[in-house]
């Protein structure tokens, strides 16, 4: 365990702007869960069980979940014992480092989109109802377009009323073609058409919107399997990225979502939406911990530009923003 990670978190000045966004996104109310960390640490006289209980409460309140919380707390106990840490203030860096390492799991996590070098890249968006799949597609389409890619959207949510219209609105806002059929059509046939069309028009990236489905609906999950198989057939492989869109307010059910969706189709990353509320979206840490699925993007607001690549440092910073605030202008003076 190095203290380096913690100071690194303070020193990288160039990130201040983006970090500010996370902070604004995640700290809109001071009542939010993990913002109590500083208070807990400064009001505790020594590192004892009462302090660990407080930390446990903070982690649970961020939806990190019982299992991962217990694991994190145990690691904190071990480290404090090994390093003979007695002053609660010293715990700050240990907590951040521990979370950091729990997330990385000793791997290099690269969440950049795996674009096809020559040819079409297909990105499939899946998830339960109401998590923000269509909105995330709109935002990502905008960013890809800005970076010079030619983007196409496929309206494979043929079930929900207004879903096709919603995607079309995004299409016209961003300025890209939307492939759709009438409501109630077979979603796989929409995907089939879209891939053919995208190939013939040399489109770079095809973003596929699917209907929200609860993971315990076997028939709907089979439908998703069929969509992925259609992609595999037309593309010669699975979609380069399949994102599970998870609402930050989601509790422990997020684990079940990640688990069952990845049983049907390999999930390459998570899009964590609505992080601009008071929810902390800690369930994604549990998902990473238990299923090794990384977080790829975060939704931080309602504007077209409010979708960012996930950055674990910024995320931890957002969780503990109050902790860093007192340390100077985002710690750049350390």
């Amino acid at each position: 365990m190095t203290m380096g990670l913690f100071s690194k978190l303070f020193s990288s000045k160039e990130k201040t702007a983006q970090r500010e966004k996370y902070k604004i996104g995640m700290m809109k109310t001071r009542k939010g869960a993990l913002s109590g960390l500083k208070e807990v640490l400064s009001s505790s006289k020594k590192v004892d069980e009462a302090l660990f209980d407080h930390l446990e409460e903070l982690f649970i309140m961020a939806d990190i979940g019982v299992n991962t919380t217990v694991k994190l707390i145990q690691q904190l106990r071990d480290v404090t014992k090994k390093q003979k840490i007695e002053d609660p203030r010293q715990l700050e860096s240990v907590i951040v480092d521990t979370m950091f390492e729990t997330y990385l799991k000793g791997q290099t996590v690269n969440t950049n989109i795996r674009f096809e070098k020559n040819g079409l890249t297909v990105i499939l968006f899946v998830g339960v109802n109401g998590t923000g799949k269509t909105t995330s597609i709109g935002k990502l389409a905008y960013q890809l377009k800005q970076s010079g890619k030619q983007v196409m959207l496929a309206a494979a949510d043929t079930f929900r009323a207004g879903a096709i219209d919603q995607l079309k609105v995004w299409g016209s806002r961003v300025g890209c073609e939307v492939i759709s059929k009438e409501a109630g059509s077979d979603p796989s046939s929409v995907v089939f058409d879209a891939i053919r069309k995208a190939k013939s028009q040399s489109v770079d990236v095809l973003l596929v919107d699917t209907a929200g489905r609860l993971q315990n609906k076997v028939n709907l999950m089979k439908e998703l399997d069929k969509i992925q198989r259609t992609i595999a057939k037309e593309l010669g492989k699975n979609a380069q990225e399949t994102y599970l869109v998870v609402d930050a307010t989601t509790g422990q059910n997020g684990l079940s979502q990640a688990k069952i969706f990845s049983e049907v189709t390999p999930i390459t990353g998570i899009v964590l939406t609505k992080l601009d509320g008071t929810a902390k979206g800690g369930i994604v840490l549990a998902i990473r911990d238990e299923l090794s699925i990384p977080i790829s993007f975060v939704g931080l607001g309602e504007k077209l530009t409010d979708l960012d690549y996930f950055d674990i440092e910024d995320y931890i910073y957002g969780l503990f923003a109050d902790l860093f605030e007192g340390e100077g202008s985002h710690g750049s003076n350390r």
Binding site: T29, M61, D63, G130, L214, G251, A279, K280, I283
Partner: peptide, 29 residues
């Protein structure tokens, strides 16, 4: 499926408006 934040959400809406009831959606999950 809402997690720990449900309390914040409900309290905030209830403070602003006089919420008379809740509807729990997606309970078939």
């Amino acid at each position: 499926m809402t997690g720990q934040d449900a309390v914040n959400v409900a309290s905030a809406f209830h403070e602003a408006l006089s919420v008379t009831g809740c509807i729990l959606t997606k309970l078939d999950g």
